[in-house]
Computed example of a mutant assay.
Amino acid sequence: MSPLENEKINGVSFVASREFVKDAHIAPIVNIHANYAAVMPFGFVQELQDPKVVYNKNRQWFGETRVGAKQYIEALQKKNIKIMMKPQIWVRKGEFTGYIKMKNEADWKLLEESYATFILDYAALAEETKAEILCIGTELEQFVVNRPDFWKQLIVEIRKVYKGKLTYAANWDEFKRTPFWSDLDFIGMDAYFPISEEKTPTIEACIEGWKPHVATIKSFSETYKKPILFTEFGYRSVDYSGKEPWRSDRSMTSVNLEAQTNTTKALLQTFWKEDWFAGGFIWKWFHNHQEVGGETNNRFTPQNKPVEKVIKEVYKAF
């Protein structure tokens, strides 16, 4: 059923940095038995009502630009890591991309032109570098819901440029309303589903918490006859990590490595064995492995935390 026969996508979301990527930066990815990396160049909008996507500018970090994305892809491919190209939008001050919404028709048209230029440029790069997957957007619900015809036509235009597999990264509470799954190769989800109210959830409680979501997710796969891809998945190493897994704000200051480990174990145990499930990309993985994560870090990265070993074991098994 998966377009990539029998091979699970054991992915990392490879964060763009200021630097060129070297073999030493990629060795830790190989070490956890990952076979895919999401490369994530960025475009920027000034505010939620601004129709202009700005990208490839001098002020951006190297890895966020087209040149940087190409260098990252080639360095990863040298180590036999396959690629999902995942261009993303950043709204100034970190506002949620799902709320990007124009006030009038003229602005909608400008946004459509600007976004199409941005994504088609990266579609061309994905084709040039023979990236296996292209993600055509990430968590853009209001844009998608308000302009479905634009997105349908955009997919047609992308397929003229790029011959690989396509997905879209719908937020966990958005995918039911995404209107173009039948036009793509994977149903993509950023899998931040709430699964437990506990401070330190047990694996069993998390598996139980997944059950209603799994039923819905599986039914989508069956309806559209497409495999499910977790375009992002992961948990912070904080108290209540399974309650609102999408929260990245700085107000959560506790460190709870066990909560991160248990929530992640439950997700991997629930999904990786299913034949309708294609795999996923852990959020998130930094190039400078020795300097990030660790046992005092409460962010998403699994690096240098107990959960890294859990991911390694499952990625090795699949």
Rank of each mutant, 00 (worst) to 15 (best):
S2D: 13
N6M: 11
K8C: 03
N10E: 09
N10C: 15
S13C: 11
S13L: 02
F14W: 03
A16C: 07
S17Q: 06
H25I: 08
V30W: 01
N31G: 06
H33D: 11
Y36S: 07
M40G: 03
F44I: 09
V45A: 07
Q46M: 15
E47Q: 15
P51L: 07
V54Y: 13
Y55D: 04
Y55I: 06
N56Q: 08
N56L: 02
K57Y: 13
G63K: 01
R66G: 12
R66M: 12
E74M: 12
K82Y: 12
K93C: 11
T97N: 12
G98F: 01
Y99L: 14
I100L: 10
E105P: 04
A106H: 11
A106N: 12
D107L: 10
L120Y: 07
A124I: 05
L125M: 12
A126L: 08
E132H: 11
L134C: 08
C135G: 03
I136E: 04
E139V: 04
V145R: 11
N146H: 13
R147N: 10
V161A: 10
L166M: 02
F175I: 02
W181A: 03
W181G: 05
D185K: 06
I187R: 00
E197Q: 13
I203K: 11
I207S: 08
K211Y: 00
A215L: 15
I217E: 03
L229C: 00
F230H: 06
R236W: 02
R236M: 07
R236H: 05
D239N: 14
Y240H: 12
Y240I: 03
E244S: 14
E244D: 15
P245V: 04
P245H: 07
R247K: 15
R250C: 12
S254G: 09
V255W: 02
N256H: 06
N256I: 07
L257E: 09
T264Q: 04
K265L: 10
A266Y: 02
L268I: 05
Q269D: 09
F271Q: 07
K284H: 12
F286M: 10
E291D: 13
R299D: 12
F300H: 03
K305N: 07
E308N: 04
Y315N: 14
